[in-house]
Amino acid sequence: MANIGIMSFAHMHAYSYAACLKQLPGCELTAVWDDNIKRGRTAAKQFETKFVANLDAFLDSSLDGVIITSENMKHRPMAERCAAAGKWILCEKPIAPSVADAQAMVQACKKAKVGLGTALPCRFSPPLMEACTQIQTGEFGEIVAASCTNHGQSPGGWFADDALSGGGATMDHTVHVADLLRWILKKEFVSVYCELGNQLHNKEFKTDDVGSLQLEMEGGVQVSHVASWSRAKSFPTWGDVTIEFIGTKGVLWVDAFNQKINVYNDAAMKAEWAYWGGNPDLGLVADFVRAVEERREPTVTGLDGLRATEVTAAAYQAAKTKKRVPIKRTR
């Protein structure tokens, strides 16, 4: 039985991961810690577990692994505390806003000999897994270009506050696609150009809310990506993850969450899409639990998180300098 704790419910994904832990066999949501005591207590009550206000007590407890779902800027100090306490870690994406922080986290976990995973659940999405399989068979030839989107509704709050998030929509919504392309194509990113905007929410945010990226991967693969918080409040769902792969022998289009029924509910006065596809979060959390039990690295590693952060960090640099920026791989 793996004992898993959750650090912080600042990120809404914490609620989904907690529900997964409750649902999965062979693990338990053993304790919750949060620097926002009220939020932590409420969440602990909701998921019928204990709230531990003292961080040392939380980390001294019988926990085997910890899921960190705090604000992006707090990931590093929290991960370092967990690593020092010998806990396996699953860290919400982006692993950290800066390359230096992401590197420090990877190194701290390596030193402490604990597993570090990055919460990039798209690798557990059935349509994306199928796309990966089909492309890796080579039936579509060599992939020479791809155009991607990761749109969302505005999460607001700390997400739009640079001091806590380290960046806006482009920080939030580039890492999934960057990781998917690295995973599926088995290639690294080499450069990025980016235009950033803060113009979809009447400039209320202290961050960007849309980014248009042009990326290059090893072997000259041309990639475009749109990261945004552009979905209107009246839009029927939260957003999307889409990729169009252009291969020498064909084209593959994947709209990962386009498994829905249209619902027209007079009480809501807007059309809604009820999703009926698989739950990628469940695959992600199940993999983490197994990694904890088997004392191995989670499938999507801290290094994968670092690679994705290298892409976003370079994109912000490109937007600032209005130049294409090389993406350097660190260790």
Binding site: A145, S212, I246
Partner: peptide, 8 residues
């Protein structure tokens, strides 16, 4: 051919 543009 496949072309991808970012325009400001």
């Amino acid at each position: 051919d496949y072309s991808q543009v970012t325009l400001r």
